Amino acid sequence: MTAPDTAASVPHPDPDAADIVRAAHGDQQAFARIVDRHLDRIHRLAWRSLDSRADAEEVAQETFLRAFGQLPDWTPGKARFSTWLYRVALNLCQDRLRRRREQVPVEDLDLADPGAAPDRTLEQDQRRQRVEQALRALPQRQREALLLCHFEGQSNAQAAQVLGVSVDALESLLARARRQLRAELAHD
């Protein structure tokens, strides 16, 4: 009889733990390391959720302001700090989306490759707009699950923890999101 695999049941240590303790005691360089470690991912998640670079920058800034305020009260072991940051960012995105009265058009799209043929560039831009429109049409929880797993590279377990659902529920959200996207983009 083999011994049970205890490595699978032992949680991985939080890579931010030491910097959290230092930053909570006023070490500005420790907090800067936390920001450097997570800013790009938080900004990218907000931008994909809100379709606005300006709004994404504001959400990222507010996320880290809240994080800074919570450092002295942070309880290690409940969840990774990065998981909590994603949840804060998603909540701030949801607040902004709720306040919008009408659909805001996608702005600040990435610039097309200047060397690409104009007809190819137009086709790629139109395809990207159709995909972004189909993503915006998804129910909020499905969109968030897809953003976390597909675009942010979170594991199903990490994304489930961010969203506060079971892994099975997350997988269901992903399956429904993919099914709806396929149906929306079938003519492409």
Rank of each mutant, 00 (worst) to 15 (best):
G164D: 03
D19I: 02
T2K: 13
T75S: 14
H25L: 15
A24P: 03
K78R: 14
A160L: 05
Q61D: 09
E144S: 05
C93I: 04
L147S: 01
A89G: 02
V165K: 04
L92G: 00
D125Q: 14
A183I: 04
R127F: 11
G26C: 10
L146H: 04
D113C: 06
A177E: 01
R141A: 14
E62W: 05
A175R: 07
P13Q: 08
L173N: 03
L174C: 06
A183Y: 07
V35D: 03
H43Y: 15
L71R: 03
P11H: 07
E152T: 05
G115P: 01
A159R: 00
E102N: 12
S82E: 09
L122M: 11
A160T: 01
L71C: 09
W74M: 04
A159C: 06
Q180R: 12
G77E: 05
Q133S: 10
Q129E: 10
A117S: 11
S9R: 14
S166L: 07
P13T: 11
F81W: 15
H25W: 15
C149E: 00
V167A: 05
T121A: 15
V104L: 10
V106A: 10
P114R: 03
L147H: 02
D110I: 12
P15I: 13
T6L: 15
D51E: 12
A145V: 05
L85G: 00
I20K: 00
F31M: 07
G153P: 03
L174D: 02
L163R: 00
Q158L: 05
V35F: 12
